[in-house]
Design a protein around this nucleic acid. Structure first.
Lengths: 357, 357
DNA sequence: TTGTAGGCGTTATCAT
DNA sequence: ATGATAACGCCTACAA
């Protein structure tokens, strides 16, 4: 057996120091314990080639008794694969991001990857440093989550190195950069059709003022779906002219062609309902309320569940990671990926038939 | 110059393959370009020892032209430090987690660490696999975020290896495991005193039914602060007997010793206000409403800002990472760390003087 | 089937 | 001050 290792050990840890860490168990320790060579131990564990049954058993026992876990950094160095997915967020303020992280992490872990999460905290001047850090880690792939149309020049670093990068919600892609997006067409169409079937002919969308710019595709899908059934569609932003949600709702309901449905972000549904009641109308007898549910948090927060177009951001993250892992292991997809079936219509107590006029 | 590298390069990349990645730039490439040895190049970049000015300049230019970024995996192997902090979440459902991640990431990045985020998705059977994965990565430190009192046995892996682990919201610690917690005493006391000064003598706390178990310390602090000013305190959970928030508020307000203040989680503030108005009372003339604001999302979601006890979870994450990095680099703290100044009282339009009786 | 040896990219030790 | 060289822990051609 090789005694050199023990010698070194004595050298480094012979003098007990409180802050000195114990030397982690290596494959060589396992091999020694099992009385085989490191290569045999390696093969027994990776299963690259067959090893004799009894030897393999001895190696496994040694792993168990010593509590051995392969050093991923060393393996990564050797294999030129770090088994790490980088995730870059422009900012981390919307709960949807939490679902995305959770979903990305779930799929990553299934594929034995881990997640390196970064956030620029809304500050573009952080990009260079963050991307370089991510690149320095030699992440095997990169997930980009930001609200902008164009992509950062810093991505060149990754593209040049042949590291797959995927992104969502980007209007303009970069050649060779697959864009992964959730196809909300089905869920939106379903919802609009259901509302139309209930007799609704006018809907007003209350836009988020603050945290979340919905993807353009969602807007477009809504346009198309309402047009198809001849439903009037109006958009009001709570930022516009400094109006509160309450004031917007009041003005809408007193207008000539008042809507019979409001579509609002989850965080503002409570306010919308309150505002409707404040002008003496009932939900859903007089006015119906519908929401987008992008995050599980939002979905769980209200006790009275509104009708929602449910977008499963967890699943979106999961699929994104799967697409990325696939790109890493089997080469990039030739075209953009659209993920289906993530949005669906979930009726609720806040929706009823349109009132007789 | 050493030609061996080029030979190997030809061997590996001589046959152009679409899916084959270009070989990343290494320190050796930089050294060759600059006409120095790898050791000199390394020293020029790490600044471990002085190198001649002109050589250093040449190295820096080479780095620039070649776009070199050190391979952190290799460095980690050599230094026995991966510059990675593991973050373990029992689940990722509450927006507070997002602030924590953002804060942890900010501090980590400042200290040149990166963040490996994992979530068990509420499933304890995932723990073993996740912890082993984290350990396999040889994270330099571990942040634990979960709602339970006791710590997982899987932590032994890290404790044995001398890897610092910190955790929040844990009642019972493990010897040698520092517990980091946000001291909400100041903010809570401040709020209660302000309410008492406005004449309020009775408060009812609406507990989250769903997603968030507030730390025991918060509960205790509230008990102490109200007792100190002789304020009546009652707790109602929206889970109890399947009551809705609305029903709870109604029953509270019709009771003999009705409260003049409600304290509710941010997600339920809208409902509480609505419920108060539903029984014909006004906010804040008849009843005041106060909330805990744990996450920036919550804080931004409502247009009418309630008065809140603001808990800066971003800053909490930031401090946690700082404590952890300090433990990694300078040895573990000898005792638990309590982070001060994270909670503060922010008055708002939902609070007014107590009504005359 | 098993062992030996070399190298992944970096830093640290040792001569020079 | 600089350069050759030896690790770090792992995998894998190659030799036995």
């Amino acid at each position: 057996m090789n005694g050199g290792r023990d010698h070194r050990t004595d050298l480094r840890y012979g003098f007990p120091m409180a802050t000195e860490r114990p030397r982690p168990v290596t494959l060589m320790d396992v091999a020694n314990e099992a009385g085989v060579s490191v290569s045999t131990a390696s093969r027994a564990l990776t299963g690259a080639r067959r090893v004799r049954g009894d030897l393999e058993a001895r190696v496994r026992t040694a792993v168990e008794t010593l509590g051995y876990r392969p050093n991923e950094a060393a393996r990564g160095l050797r294999m030129a694969r770090t088994m790490t997915l980088g995730v870059f967020f422009h900012e981390l303020t919307n709960p949807v991001s939490l679902d995305l992280i959770d979903g990305l992490g779930a799929a990553a872990h299934e594929a034995r990857y881990s997640l390196a999460v970064t956030s620029a905290r809304g500050d573009r001047s952080q990009y260079a440093s963050l991307f370089q850090h991510l690149y320095g880690q030699r992440v095997d792939g990169l997930v980009l989550v930001w609200p902008f149309g164009e992509l950062s020049a810093h991505l060149a670093l990754f593209v040049r190195a042949g590291i797959p990068v995927i992104t969502i919600r980007s209007q303009r892609g970069v050649p060779g950069l697959p864009v992964v997006s959730a196809d909300t067409t089905a869920g939106i169409t379903e919802a609009v059709n259901a509302l139309a079937a209930l007799g609704h002919r006018g809907m007003t969308v209350i836009a988020h003022g603050i945290l979340w710019t919905p993807p353009a595709s969602r807007r477009r899908n809504l346009d198309l779906a309402t047009e198809a059934v001849g439903m009037r569609l109006r958009r009001r932003s709570s930022r516009d002219a400094g109006l509160t949600v309450r004031e917007i709702v009041a003005s809408e309901l007193s207008s000539e062609d008042a809507p019979t449905v409001f579509l609002a972000p989850y965080a503002e549904v409570g306010e919308v309902i309150e505002a409707i009641r404040a002008v003496g109308k009932r939900v859903p007898e007089d006015v119906s309320v519908v929401s987008f549910a992008d995050s599980r948090f939002g979905a769980a927060a209200l006790s009275e569940r509104p009708a929602v177009i449910d977008v499963d951001s967890f699943e979106l993250g999961r699929r994104m990671a799967q697409v990325l892992v696939d790109a890493i292991e089997n080469g990039p997809p030739s075209e953009d990926v659209r993920i289906q079936g993530l949005a669906r219509w979930v009726p609720g107590a806040t929706v009823g038939p349109a009132p007789h006029r």
